[in-house]
Write a protein that binds this DNA or RNA. Sequence first.
DNA 1: ACCTGAACACCGTTCAAGT
DNA 2: ACCTGAACACCGTTCAAGT
Lengths: 226, 226
Amino acid sequence: MVDDVNPRSHILVDDVNLAYDWPVDSTRERLIEAAARLLDEGGPAAVTLREVGRLAGVSHNAPYKHFADKQDLLAAVAARELARQPRQSRQPRSPSSASRRAGGTLAGVPGVDDDAVRSMMRGYIRWATRYPARFKLTFGSWSSASAELGEAASAARSALVRAVEAGQAARTLPDGDPDRLAALLLAVTHGAVDLALSGHLSKSGKGHASPEDLVDDLLRYLRPAG
Amino acid sequence: MVDDVNPRSHILVDDVNLAYDWPVDSTRERLIEAAARLLDEGGPAAVTLREVGRLAGVSHNAPYKHFADKQDLLAAVAARELARQPRQSRQPRSPSSASRRAGGTLAGVPGVDDDAVRSMMRGYIRWATRYPARFKLTFGSWSSASAELGEAASAARSALVRAVEAGQAARTLPDGDPDRLAALLLAVTHGAVDLALSGHLSKSGKGHASPEDLVDDLLRYLRPAG
DNA sequence: ACCTGAACACCGTTCAAGT
DNA sequence: ACCTGAACACCGTTCAAGT
């Protein structure tokens, strides 16, 4: 089982941290973290307010002092995930990707190379693959789309739009409304990873394609002919 | 589709029926129908075995004689949905689409026109939009992917592959592995509709794009230059 | 072979009360 | 302002028993 999380234990971490194991101080944050952890370990069914409270070191109805109800707590988990995801997507991933960038069309500009979009999409796929339950939760049906969740979502969206505009400037993406192109890219990526997670992407044989493959396919089709 | 038909049931219906309101006799079918109906009306939370039993006219634990547990019942709902969906996608939709077909490149061949793929994708979007809860259920996380569900899924997939091959023959889709192209098309469609349902597709302003728009965009980018 | 009613453990939520 | 323990209605599942 999971050990107790004590208040004021570890130090809060930097931007880059993928953050599976942050103990955070305020009760509210600890409740969110506990819910996310239970989600990862046992799926949605494992997230009970009683267990959330136990993990956070409070009683099973203390959450009601911080959230309207269970749904509201889960919305906070989703919003936190959404707020972190673009940062995760943007972080450099390996030395090999850095060396690839040196051959890119915008080699001199740090962080704005010709496959910034591809990197973001890979980050998205990696996040969804690593935390499938959080991914499913984030894009679940929200009856009361909280303002917090909506803002986090549009922030994530505009980060992608900026990457698309960079790709258009570098002539690796076609012209046209960058918002719409970003939506297309997000749709393929999201759809591919969601289908893969639920086993609806033919997993074996000749038809096999990973989400990464499908994103690469799309980027190839999008590449201007010139 | 060769389940036993009991006495005073309605006759099993033709291929075309969208089938929201089929009374069927066997208890097993009635349980599945009741679950689907509750899902539509109140979301996953409304599907309780007690209410399912009440709607089907049996006790609240009669389902255990037909399904291992609640999850197994829900898997049967998903499998039924998956088995119906390709037929729904293939059905003719309006006179206008038939007249459009007359101008297509394969006008003489019934049901294999140049936008068979587009029609299927629109059918998919329409199904998901009309029954969002069934859609979310079907692509939810299945711990024990039942054989029935797997078979239904691959049948749906191969119907799309055939449409893709028709599009390639008509030169409206690029060459290449049709399975992989089908996966790309399904990914965009699925992703777009899933994002739209969860409100993550920018709903207003200049960036607005419907799932249908995004599918059309992709088909345009895929169209061979020749 | 199919179904029922009672029972059990568990859950979300409410509430009066404590600091 | 935040938290607790008891209580309530409800749920999935099991089981002994009925036809």
